[in-house]
Design a protein around this nucleic acid. Structure first.
Lengths: 144, 144
DNA sequence: TTAATTGCAAAGTTTTTGCGACCAC
DNA sequence: GTGGTCGCAAAAACTTTGCAATTAA
């Protein structure tokens, strides 16, 4: 779609004082354009379409950098590989269809509020959370 | 404490038709006696105290077996290693102190109910879930 | 008895790292 | 210019697997 525009994530990185190399820009764009939750290999594959020279080591290093700087979130869906998505500020959760592997994102402020309360009651300040629902579809015709 | 008594997890395994070898009994006991969330290496270390011959391959195989049979739960706290705990039937969640690494377990039926509702509203049946809260302690003197 | 399980070592996966060349600031 | 970053290949970390010997039922 938009080829030259600076992505929000790139702006984010610059604000945090990161040196913006060509590779980092490519990886930022890949994440920006992804609506799913790609693993490292997939991110590398997508990045290679924009810069065929980019190495997997750089992808690993850059994802760790972005994650540490909190511009992306690292996810684990139990298959042994890390997955990533943009940190879009608004807290959201994941529903996984265990049959098809499909991932549905959802928000719920009531849950947000309740989790904050729970943490406080236990003597903690909530900094972040992860909530994954493992489900099967109720639709009989579900395939993918 | 109780040396000869058959642990609940062992009974569980027998009921599921598993062949109960000495190694499996040892690993079942280790998990039964653990109040924390040990990783594979730690489980192997604890098992080795009861049977110094036990191999890490057997620990991996047995944990996978127990997990598949649903007598234990596999956890991932984001450090790249799998951790395990008994599946005690009652659904519970984890609060992680990000400074000390301490893990607090808690239950909350209101959350349980809300998650079921959410899944239903999205057209799914909830089969299982994972909820981890990442927190910092409000107590100024927290160390460990 | 015999099919399942074990230990060992080798191999598979995923991720990190040392190093000399290179680049953003 | 120079400290940070890159690609590469090696290694580290975690997990699985083939095979011959052993064992539970």
């Amino acid at each position: 779609m938009d080829k030259k525009k600076i992505s929000k994530i790139e702006k984010n990185c610059i604000e945090k004082g990161m040196r913006m190399t060509g590779q980092r820009r490519v990886i930022a764009r890949v994440l920006s354009d992804s609506q799913d939750h790609p693993d490292v290999e997939e991110i590398h594959r997508r990045a290679a379409k924009l810069d065929s020279q980019i190495s997997i080591a750089t992808v690993y290093r850059t994802l760790r950098l972005f994650d540490t700087a909190n511009v992306i979130d690292r996810l684990e869906f139990g298959d042994g590989r890390a997955r990533y998505e943009l940190n879009n500020e608004i807290n959201h959760y994941h529903l996984l269809d265990v049959k098809s592997g499909k991932v549905v994102e959802f928000e719920n402020q009531e849950v947000d509020r309740r989790l904050n309360e729970i943490a406080l009651n236990l003597g903690y300040r909530l900094m972040g959370n992860r909530l994954d629902l493992y489900c099967t579809s109720l639709k009989p015709d579900s395939n993918e």
